[in-house]
Design a protein around this nucleic acid. Structure first.
Lengths: 229, 229
DNA sequence: ATTCTTAGTGTTGATTTGACACTAAGTCAA
DNA sequence: TTGACTTAGTGTCAAATCAACACTAAGAAT
């Protein structure tokens, strides 16, 4: 036991709530634990923070290691420090939430990990530790954030239709939105670039594809703009 | 060195940004460091997390020990984990922000601590560690939160005038508000109880005193209400 | 050619917002 | 005791925003 300190120290971990958007549902990625405690239970991907990496770096590393995901949208959520949240010893966990374009990553999640899987947010099994609480908070945060920041694009492919975008908002916010009002508002923000492409292989009129103008968004966000939907 | 671990561990601390409302300014409490590193510098109150206390308990304990403040509004802000934020070793700090009724606590801060003092948020000295960054984030958060949650009452005495409340909003949001519109909106939320008292010892017409209806707020907040100002 | 499905598009009434100025009450000083 | 001073307290209107609402257009499938 080579690392000694004058006072006892909590272990420090990161946990990630990874959201992805299926055609039909908002999903989160879970991994099945291979060791005790909670062996066999599903849990959020995560692990110990190394001394030479920041918290966010730790979260990204664990995400890559355990789920193959990388270059995703990632933001700190909350830090969980209940004394007994881990039965072994004191563990404080900094939780992050991630938004991934499922369309890009579908393959990996399927091949990579026999112990990683996507679950619909309304169909999540019992989770290890206090991960249910973390998940709940992540959902609340995602909903809150979506209302006033154009964060939803992170869940869609680079090019998407307005209907997809609306569908995403409806899934996350759990209420129906009026198509015309939604389009009016979202186009009015002036952050979408109309491409000259339309969706392919659909059995009906094909919708126009749009891109999110991330540069413009960054500029305006820095200037303290508001993007309430 | 009695505490040994298989892998190296970061030290875990809490830091608190304590806001108080002077008649003229929004203030924060700082303490002057007595030891290196940054000896003599001003810093946010804070300290190490003990193993048998939650993060919030640690924050409250440190607050009480270092500044004499207790039973204040306290909420987690963000966790700071840059690798070099402390020159000695890896230290991860969970930051909280607190809102205190300066009117209640003025005495204590004056007597208690020769090394604790209030500074106007626009007149803060150079801070130790990354505390300037923490402060900035706390300010942003306070501003953001004030817009859609009736959190400002935590900075005022139990009974206050509408002008005081407006003044507080103006100080925090850093813009002037229209008196009539402000009163309309704030009374319209229906969270203020008109008392039968008026302010005392003022050299002009005395204003009515109001109380914040915390019970009602809690009920409505739980029901998912919105209190955008 | 007909049917089916989703894309795409404007108007209107209701509500909310923001700008704006005067009277009321009380203290103070001459 | 009166007049001056200071802050409390109050309503209207025009502009902007929001929410409700239904039809035509395009393309695929039969």
């Amino acid at each position: 036991m080579p690392y000694s300190y004058e006072y006892p120290r909590a272990a420090l971990t990161v946990d990630c709530v990874v959201f992805g958007l299926d055609d039909e549902e908002l999903k989160i990625m879970l991994i099945q634990r291979g060791q005790p405690p909670f062996e066999g239970s599903w849990a959020l991907p995560g692990g110990f923070v190394h001394l030479e990496e920041t918290l966010e770096e730790a979260a990204r590393r664990e995400l890559e290691e355990e789920t193959g995901l990388h270059k995703v949208f990632l933001e700190q959520l909350y830090t969980f420090g209940a004394v007994d949240r881990d039965p072994r010893e004191r563990v404080v966990s900094v939780a992050y939430y991630a938004l991934v374009k499922l369309s890009d990553h579908k393959v990996q999640a399927a091949t990579d990990a026999r112990d990683a899987a996507w679950f619909g947010v309304h169909d999540v099994p019992t989770l290890a530790f206090d991960h249910a609480e973390i998940l709940q908070m992540a959902l609340d945060r995602l909903r809150g954030k979506l209302r006033y920041q154009p964060i939803g694009f992170e869940l869609l492919p680079k090019k998407f239709t307005l209907s997809q975008l609306q569908h995403l908002y409806e899934l996350v916010l759990e209420r129906e939105l009026d198509k015309r009002n939604f389009r009016k508002k979202v186009l009015g923000m002036d952050l979408l670039i109309e491409t000259d492409e339309v969706e392919q292989d659909v059995a009906h009129r094909a919708a126009r594809l749009y891109r999110f103008d991330e540069r413009k968004y960054r500029r305006l966000a820095k200037a303290g703009f508001n993007f309430e939907l």
